[in-house]
Design a binder for these strands. Structure first.
Lengths: 243, 243
DNA sequence: CGTCACATTGATATTTGTCAAGGCCCGTGG
DNA sequence: CCACGGGCCTTGACAAATATCAATGTGACG
């Protein structure tokens, strides 16, 4: 008998060694031996369509996920509140689920923003593997540490007073992350809605729209729908640095 | 020859096994053997006075720290900006420096808010120890994961629109953390200034002061200076849950 | 061509920041 | 012991930013 996951695995012939994200992913710096063992535990679930959940808040924690292509948002439904709060956006090579390690259940849902492929890492198996391979253990810690620094940035963004500063910082963050992953730093898709951006930045979606328009008129960016072109990285950076 | 650190170590006769924080600290769940080895690598630096830095932004990363008594704030100085941004407050048994793992230098400063004792864990030694002791490695990961969840809460707080929601959430968070560490959940010191709280919550210090006053008039809390008494945990919780 | 979700734009209300003045607490020095 | 000074906190008046409400526009897709 063959499971769906295995089928997908074989079809795609995806292995870490040849993966374009290898150098930025959890597998960075792994020896040939470790890499092959790592490859063994990966599951390739069927691709997620826009709006489908990879993880649901409250469900038991079993696996970490690495984004291969596409993007997702992490959302929390706060008790007694209607609206969902967007916590994170995940881009290719980023790890989903690190905050659930050592917990019974997941504290937030993670939903695809577009058609998205991920690699699933059953956590128990990952842990056993980490016992044998120091490099993997170290990389896992570095990965969590990096996410902690990302959250620091996020807190700085949100505490930065004006809507301009928040949006500029957000766009620069996306630019930086795309660049680090080998995509253009000047041109990318905003796969999330204005409402998602607003929730993430603590702004009303109308404000996001207005500020985006202002940036465009000032020649800082060009937006048409969800495609964004950065025209002046310096201009955006200057906004964030204003006292 | 005896170093200052060693002197303090001997004087205080502090060992993990007898420490009141043992059950909430990184040493939770360690075997007797592991605990003794852990004890060996701990350094007890001289106590910090109010305003003294434990870690300075930009300095090389060498150690993690565990708060024993007292409290600290983590602040970032953003390039080209005058004011410092408060990222975190650290309470007893919490770990300082996790976000710097795998990095050359520290991304933020950490400053004592009152007289504060910490345990220093030289990171290289901690890492070697973690190779031998699975429980320590697991606890370190759980610790980082817990901090990631804390940051999630923080982001939810900051994105929560009103000043009331932010401050209520902040006070509840402190209450919860004190409670989890064996202190009163209803009565504690705000060792940080209104300006620090404001920076941390993305509010002007005047707003913090006004909202605190409003809470007091509503009978939710009693504040006199920096001593806070929670009169209605439910009332504060209700504030955060309003749609 | 119509529908639906999403985005933009405008008018108005509310919240919060800013500026300014004054009060309180505490340590220091006369 | 008391007066003084400085840091921190509170309070008020006003201005600015942003949320809210409402209407309209746009693009994808059946």
């Amino acid at each position: 008998m063959t499971t769906v996951s295995q089928t997908y695995r074989r079809q795609s012939e995806m292995h870490c060694e040849g993966c374009s994200l290898h150098s930025t992913c959890l597998t960075r710096g792994l020896s040939q031996v470790a890499l092959e063992a790592f490859d063994e535990i990966i599951v390739q679930p069927r691709p997620l369509k826009r709006g489908q959940a990879l993880v649901r808040q409250g469900q038991p924690f079993r696996s970490l996920y690495l984004v291969r292509t596409g993007s997702l948002k992490q959302v929390i439904r706060l008790p007694g509140r209607q609206d969902e709060q967007v916590i994170h956006f995940y881009l290719p090579s980023e790890a989903v689920g690190l905050e659930a390690i050592g917990e019974e259940s997941c504290s937030a849902s993670v939903v695809a923003l577009e058609t998205t492929f991920v690699c699933e890492l059953p956590f128990e198996q990952l842990e056993s593997l980490a016992v044998e391979h120091d490099a993997l253990r170290a990389e896992l810690m570095r990965c969590m540490s990096r996410e902690l620094r990302g959250d620091q940035r996020q807190v700085c963004l949100l505490s930065g007073r004006t809507a301009e500063q928040r949006l500029a910082g957000f766009l620069l963050g996306l630019s930086r992350r795309f660049h680090a992953r080998g995509y253009s730093r000047y041109r990318f898709q905003l796969t999330m809605s204005r409402a998602d951006i607003g929730s993430h930045l603590g702004l009303a979606l109308e404000t996001v729209s207005r500020v985006m328009g202002r940036f465009q008129r000032q020649g800082l960016v060009k937006v048409s729908g969800r495609e964004l072109t950065v025209r002046s990285l310096e201009g955006l950076e200057a906004l964030g640095e204003e006292g």
